[in-house]
């Protein structure tokens, strides 16, 4: 197992398409709910403990070897709006392409064949982490980090914030990110004995509503 492999998979420059998505922050900026570094931190904290926890659980379970097709259904049941399901699958398709190029594995090939339109992104991410010889906890950590890293970077562009403030914000959230990742990995470890229902399904009403609103915009900077 290689630490550097995890850094590569979690790097914003890994060509998996994440940079084109704001994780809901573009809609929140438009509604003036996020307007400075403090409201951005509140946004990131809320996203980490809802979507972040849920995706980290799915990623960890995929990395632990749970059936990715069952996980894909579990992800659908945890994503009640079509716009966010479409985003998750599009990101999954892009992640699949990058993952198969970097960490080829039979499991990734099989999922790509079963879900040609793309599986939910955290499941592909979990399989990629597995293919790289890393642990479910690593997958959870990458997914949880991404749940705040994406919106923070997007908000810097949308609000012309100081990138140093945004990095400080992410550093402040790092202990909480670890806690969320640990909770997600614990849940994933219990799947074999207790079933998929133990995976987190934390959700946020506003991310669902504004995700669908954002998809209906004609002019936008980010794809979601």
């Amino acid at each position: 197992m290689s630490r550097a492999a995890l850094l590569l998979l979690a790097d914003g420059r890994f060509p998996a398409g994440g940079h084109a998505h704001s994780g809901g922050v573009e809609a929140a900026v438009a509604h003036k709910a996020v307007h400075d570094i403090y409201s951005l931190e509140a946004f990131c904290r809320g996203r980490l403990h809802t979507t972040g926890l849920t995706t980290a659980g799915l990623a960890a379970a995929a990395a632990a070897g749970c059936d990715p097709l069952l996980l894909d259904d579990a992800a659908d049941a945890r994503t009640p709006v079509p716009a966010l399901r479409a985003v998750a699958r599009r990101l999954g398709r892009q992640m699949m392409r990058a993952a198969r190029a970097t960490f080829p594995s039979a499991e990734l090939d099989r999922l790509a064949a079963e879900r040609p339109q793309g599986a939910h992104q955290p499941i592909v991410q979990g399989l990629a982490v597995r293919a790289a010889g890393l642990t479910p906890k690593d997958a959870a950590c990458a997914a949880a980090y991404e749940s705040t890293g994406g919106p923070a970077t997007a908000a810097v562009r949308l609000l012309s914030l100081n990138p140093l403030d945004a990095s400080r914000l992410l550093a402040r959230l790092s202990a909480e990110t670890d806690t969320v990742a640990a909770a997600a990995a614990d849940a994933a470890a219990r799947v074999t004995t207790e079933g998929l229902d133990v995976l987190p399904s934390a959700s946020s009403p506003l991310l669902d509503i504004t995700g669908e609103q954002h998809a209906a915009w004609t002019m936008r900077l980010f794809a979601s």
Partner: peptide
């Protein structure tokens, strides 16, 4: 399958993402 948690001590529950 949805899980929600509001009110203290839940982190971030009243923020702009929730």
């Amino acid at each position: 399958d949805q899980h929600t948690a509001y009110g203290d001590p839940e982190p971030g529950w009243d923020g702009p993402a929730v």
